[in-house]
Simulated assay, not measured.
Amino acid sequence: MTISVLELYPAHLSLNGDVGNRTALVRRMRLAGIDVAEHAYHPGDTLPDTPDIVTIGTGTSSAQRSLASDIARLAPLLAEWSEAGVVIFAAGAGFHLLSASVRFGADEVIPGAGVFAGSADASRPRIITEAFAVESDFGLLIGTENHTSVFVGRPDQKPIGRVRHGVGNGDGTDGAVVNNSFGTHLHGPALVLNPSLADHLIGLATGRAGVDYVRSGEHDALDKTVELARSILINKLPSSGQKS
């Protein structure tokens, strides 16, 4: 059994190195002896058959605008995949494009794919947090944030976690979780710096496919190196938040 990983718009939405999210997932599965097929989708391409995992990263406002028509074309299929339980991981602008809509100004709103309930207002002053920390079911998620948006979701839609340091959605939470779809403002890339979240996503995807994902000593060695990078960011948190 081969696990299919699809990245959407890597040429447009990789501003903060979010292509590393796909790389992290693929690397961790291959360390577990799982066969993985990688796909990249660009505007106008033909999509592969239903993937097991979809990733999408962040980009500039101009990049988002240029993708509006293609996102609208893909919206029904992306919503169908999400409802079917396909794992989707969306960071930054990709998260916003997969919401209901993105507002760039009083008279400029583009529709999103509708995977996540809620809308992004991308006309706010820029937010940069060097050590962005989110408490979640997967432990402390750490990374950076760099965006000009607030995200207003539906009250019954679960966030990915509560912000310990930074802004996130703008209401004390970050991101959104719908079915097996996860949206966040975490960069770093997020799935490189947060192996527990990466393993959770892999577990969801491999479980649906009937494939066993078993960590090895190579995962442990990799995660020890990751922990060094995590510790640098964790040590930058305000003193009240100095715990991993």
Rank of each mutant, 00 (worst) to 15 (best):
V36H: 14
S240Q: 07
D212C: 01
L74A: 01
V86N: 00
D45R: 05
E38A: 14
H42V: 03
R30I: 00
T46V: 14
V19C: 10
E227S: 15
L191Q: 03
A221C: 04
A68G: 05
L25P: 03
I142M: 04
A205M: 13
G20S: 04
L204Y: 06
R27G: 04
F132S: 06
A209P: 00
N194H: 11
G59Y: 09
D199V: 06
S101I: 09
P195V: 00
D212S: 15
T23M: 14
R103Y: 04
R28E: 13
I34K: 12
S101A: 15
P111V: 00
H200A: 15
I234D: 01
R126E: 09
M1G: 13
E83M: 09
R215V: 08
E227H: 14
H219D: 03
P111H: 13
D49E: 14
G59P: 10
D18P: 07
L237S: 01
S240P: 00
V86G: 05
Y41R: 12
N21Y: 08
V214Q: 13
V177Y: 12
I232F: 04
T144M: 14
G153L: 07
P189L: 13
V163S: 05
S239Q: 13
L191Y: 03
S62C: 02
D223P: 02
H96I: 05
D121S: 10
S196R: 09
L193D: 02
L237Y: 00
E218V: 00
S239G: 02
T144H: 10
R103V: 13
L233K: 10
S99M: 08
A84G: 06
G105E: 08
N146P: 09
G114S: 09
H185T: 03
T58S: 15
A93T: 13
F116C: 01
V214A: 15
D174A: 09
T184L: 06
T148F: 10
H187I: 08
N194A: 02
F151I: 02
G241A: 09
V177T: 12
G139K: 00
I56S: 03
S119W: 05
T206I: 11
N169R: 01
S123M: 11
G59L: 10
F116K: 00
L8T: 08
D49G: 15
T23E: 12
A90M: 08
I56F: 03
G153M: 13
L47A: 12
A84T: 06
L233H: 00
R27A: 15
I234K: 08
P189Y: 08
S99H: 05
N146C: 07
L8R: 13
L98N: 14
L186A: 06
V87I: 04
G183E: 07
P111C: 02
S82K: 04
L6F: 09
I56E: 00
A75Q: 10
F151M: 11
I71V: 15
H96V: 02
S231Q: 12
L67K: 14
A32N: 02
L77C: 00
